[in-house]
Design a protein around this nucleic acid. Structure first.
Length: 888
RNA sequence: GGUCGCAUAGCUCAGUUGGUUAGAGCGCUACGCUCACAUCGUAGAGGUCUCUGGUUCGAAUCCAGAUGCGACCACCA
């Protein structure tokens, strides 16, 4: 118990830097982030989307992890057995490219100069060197990851899981090897999966080329955007329904430049309306042509090699780069008079996600995961709601992709990654897929085995993350307790890469979806709405923002004003606003601490509190906020929850309650009254800090530790709950009346430019039912509206001649500002107000006169409208009466 | 070509079971260093919630269409 308040040495401005370092190391040291399996509690678990091990934290990470941290901290406070498992991804191509670049720049060497083993050593070195950076950056954000459970996709356990999955799928026939058309990056020198190819519309050309008929009876004309691939043509296709070409189908053409005789075939795929209606078929270099080749038993001739150059099969063009070859082919065709025409043409070109090089489709022997059997349950899981996307609309994207999925090419011709656990017997050719490295051939016993040189797609190991991090394939207590995880938080950009694959792998190997909820967020863009990117140089480093404004401010910025799934712009002004908010809380707390000196909540008899109207009001508002914040969090509306707290703290707690409580704290209301208000102030502040803690962990801990509290840390404080009796609609409405009077008087003062420091007196004429309310709360009007002397009287009572009038809450307020009174202006102002009120009355009474509304609208809505109308009429009456007086 | 999203104050954005006199931050205007806070306070200006129809007693909110942006998917050579 720390029951004494500590105010000494609190600066006027919140200084996040030291506070953050102090608390983070303290939390870690005390192992508050760590969770052991505790079956007495309900589990709550999250696995981090593992960032690239050598990467750096960007704004997207900062937001993604802040969201996760909010959820975990909240659930932890709610008493769940909450765990957040962190870790990093080896990021196959991305990391290999980086290391290769460094090697070239620093030593002028390629990876081949070093050789596989030495190169891999370098990558591990690299990982050692930069692998801590991302973790330190995450820590600076304040995330409450269970660092004792930190994992890496290439650590021993994850590697074991990868092998297990590979071999199991292989044995089930769901992983196979074969020569199919795949996406090849000539620069990275590896195969890619479909999702690793980004399609971009480019302005290109389409060429019409004549192919001579074999029988010498003229030519046919085909259209192509890639003339160089003609070297690998093995047919020309027309649509069977295309009568123009019906007679040609039995014929053959002689492929120019190559002199190969190829058939003219019919296939429905061909669109008669496009180009000339005749398509050259290159099975080895076009996915469609490949399919057609299979249908028609066409030969597949690879003419572009893995280096992007023409192969030996390309005859005299062999060795030329594919673009060079295009020029040469076109020139030769031109010379032969076979080039009919060229047109501008826009078409989508596939590019390597990592390096931007134009991808070359080519036939190659690779490993694939057979997707149909895995996709089916994964589709069902989302359709039947076992896994829900938030916002829901993303499930449509997911389903569309899953339903049209093609087999997943998982082998990569890289060195950095999980080596494919397949060995080839050099003696008998047996293919052995094994979880443990084999020493001898399972068929012939030969020890001359060679492992497949390729590695797996980096997303293969990521797909296992929700269970590999919990120790699978061992049957651990963690798996039993924490799987499935509670929610996955990630960006929409990796739904296909990652989310989808986790779902089918989870279903296949755990028999259960890996998470019931997927919370999707958008991208962080720059102030102009552009994507933050290295090439544009418009990225903002979250660490710089943390250094300048504090982690709490950054976190709050990234969470507020955003709706799930929507992109947001990063605006420095917003961080400033968040920083100011932190400072506001800091100062409100300083106020509270100064006035809680010597206060001990344990000494308060909560059954005998003497609550003032503001006390009752703030408790009621506080009760509401607890409910709202909790409700929003439950719906993953983090931004709304944060906004709710912002408004409550600034507009209600600071702007009103703190001002309202001053008379009791400073004045001589009596010790018991003072203690009651102290109790309320303490309780609301402490509880509000607790509600805010998931969003702004450092600031809230720093203050919480200084106010009376029980427990070691706010991190483990129970999530606030509203108490019976706090909810108080009467107090809210009474307080609202008082506030309305205050606003109204302030308004007049401002309008009349009464100096803020000058007290004025006021006469308030109130209806019988509300006289007492005003009289009882006179002190608040006096303090907050800076009134000297205040008189409450019945409506129609006598008053001084020269007064400025305001009508509010159905009462007449008179400020005797003698020389400032201008009757004409008074009349003008009152008339305008009357006009407004009359408008409202018209609207409201119109609504109530509508039988449809009265009969069909819910009772409460109608009642509310009636009350509103009554108040408006009262208001109107007051204004009219006053106007009549003035116009006499 | 298909699917989806967005269009609300000068700017950036909230607004989820349809029921307010439509909100916030920044910016703007006036006044104020009042002992929690000038990273502040008080008061104020500023919006036919893109347009057109429809459903409903009632629409920023639901439906249809239009326009303008944006995203994703796609094998039209």
């Amino acid at each position: 118990m720390a029951n004494e308040t500590q105010t000494q040495g609190l600066p006027k401005v919140f200084e996040p830097k030291e506070v953050e370092a102090k608390w983070y190391s303290s939390w870690k040291e005390k192992r508050y982030f760590h969770a052991e399996v505790d079956k007495s509690k309900k589990p709550f678990s999250i696995v981090i989307p593992p960032p690239n091990v050598t990467g750096q934290l960007h704004m997207g990470h900062a937001m993604d992890n802040t969201m996760q941290d909010i959820l975990v901290r909240w659930k932890r406070m709610q008493g769940y057995n909450a765990v957040w498992i962190p870790g990093t991804d080896h990021a196959g191509i991305a990391t290999q490219i980086k290391v290769e670049e460094a090697l070239r720049e620093e030593e002028g060497l390629s990876r081949h100069d070093l050789g596989r083993e030495k190169f891999l050593e370098r990558v591990w070195d690299w990982k050692q060197r930069f692998g801590h950076r991302i973790r330190e950056q995450l820590e600076a954000l304040g995330v409450s990851c269970d660092w004792e459970r930190e994992r890496f996709t290439m650590d021993e356990g994850c590697s074991k899981a990868v092998r297990e999955v590979f071999v199991e799928l292989y044995n089930k026939g769901l992983i196979y090897q074969g020569s199919y058309i795949i996406n090849w990056c000539p620069r990275c020198q590896t195969a890619l999966s479909d999702v690793e190819v980004e399609h971009e519309d480019q302005q290109g050309k389409i060429w019409h080329i004549k192919y001579p008929l074999r029988d010498g009876e003229g030519f046919i004309t085909i259209a192509t955007t890639r003339p160089e691939t003609m070297l690998g043509d093995t047919a020309v296709a027309v649509n069977p329904a295309d009568e123009r070409y019906h007679d040609l189908v039995t014929k053959t053409v002689v492929l120019p430049l190559v002199d190969r005789e190829i058939p003219i075939i019919e296939d429905d795929y061909v669109d008669p309306a496009f180009g000339t209606g005749m398509v050259k078929i290159t099975p080895a270099h076009d996915p469609n042509d490949f399919e057609m080749g299979l249908r028609h038993g066409l030969e597949s001739i690879v003419v572009i090699g893995e280096d992007g150059k023409i192969t030996e099969a390309g005859g005299k063009y062999a060795g030329m780069d594919r673009y060079e070859a295009r020029k040469a082919v076109l020139a030769d065709l031109e010379e032969l008079g076979l080039l009919v025409k060229v047109k501008e043409h826009q078409h989508a070109v596939g590019q390597c996600q990592r390096c931007g090089t134009t991808v070359e489709p080519l036939v190659s022997k690779q490993w694939f995961v057979k997707m149909k059997p895995l996709a089916e349950p994964a589709i069902a899981a989302v359709k039947n709601g076992s896994t829900k996307f938030v916002p829901e609309r993303f499930s449509k994207n997911y389903l569309h992709w899953m339903e049209n999925i093609r087999d997943w090419c998982i082998s990569r011709q890289l060195w950095w990654g999980h080596r494919i656990p397949v060995w080839y017997c050099q003696d008998c050719g047996e293919v052995i897929a094994a979880k443990e490295d084999p020493t001898a051939c399972t068929k012939c016993g030969s020890t001359d085995l060679e492992q497949d040189p390729d590695v797996l797609d980096t997303w293969f190991s990521s797909a296992l993350w929700p269970f590999s991090t919990m120790g699978w394939p061992e049957q651990t207590a963690e798996l039993e307790h924490f799987y499935p995880t509670s929610v996955l938080v990630t960006g929409f950009d990796i739904i296909y890469f990652w989310v989808a694959r986790m779902i089918f792998m989870g279903l296949e190997f755990m028999g259960e979806v890996p998470f019931p909820d997927v919370l999707i967020h958008g991208l962080i863009r720059d102030p102009q709405g552009r994507k933050m990117s290295k090439s544009l140089g418009n990225g903002v480093d979250p660490m710089e923002v943390v250094a300048e404004y504090g982690a709490d401010a950054l976190r709050f910025t990234l969470i507020t004003g955003t709706a799930p799934g929507n992109d947001t712009r990063y605006q420095p002004e917003k961080v400033e606003a968040s920083r100011n908010f932190a400072n506001k809380i800091w100062n409100a707390s300083r106020f509270a601490l100064m006035n809680l000196e010597g206060f001990d909540p344990a000494g308060v008899d909560t059954g005998a509190l003497q609550l003032s109207l503001p006390d009752q009001w703030i408790l009621s508002r506080y009760a509401r906020v607890i409910g709202e914040v909790t409700r929003h969090l439950e719906r993953y509306d983090l931004g709304e929850a944060a906004r709710e707290l912002y408004d409550f703290i600034w507009s209600e707690l600071c702007d009103w309650y703190i001002e309202l409580v001053k008379p009791r704290l400073y004045g001589n209301a009596g010790e018991e009254a003072k203690a009651s208000s102290q109790y309320v102030l303490w309780n609301v502040l402490r509880g509000t800090l607790e509600l805010l803690h998931p969003f702004m962990p450092f600031l809230t801990e720093e203050i919480w530790q200084r106010v009376p509290h029980s427990g070691e840390t706010i991190m483990l404080a129970p999530w606030p709950q509203s108490e019976a009796g706090w909810h108080n609609p009467q107090a809210e409405s009474d307080m609202e009346t008082v506030m309305e009077l205050i606003r109204s008087i302030r308004n007049i003062r401002a309008e009349k430019q009464v100096p803020p420091g000058k007290a004025v007196s006021a006469i308030i004429h109130a209806p019988a039912g509300r006289k007492q309310l005003v009289a009882d709360n006179a002190q608040y009007l006096e303090t907050l509206a800076k009134l000297g002397e205040m008189t409450v009287a019945d409506i129609g009572s006598a008053k001084p001649e020269k007064v400025v009038t305001a009508i509010a809450a159905g009462m007449e307020i008179y400020l005797p500002l003698a020389d400032l009174v201008d009757i004409e202006k008074e009349i003008g102002r009152l008339k305008a107000e009357l006009e407004n009120t009359a408008q409202e009355i018209k609207r409201s009474s119109g609504k109530l006169a509508n039988a449809g509304f009265v009969n069909k609208a819910p009772e409460a809505v109608v009642t509310k409208e009636r009350e509103k109308l009554a108040a408006l009429k009262e208001q109107e009456e007051r204004i009219r009466a006053r106007l009549a007086e003035l116009q006499e």
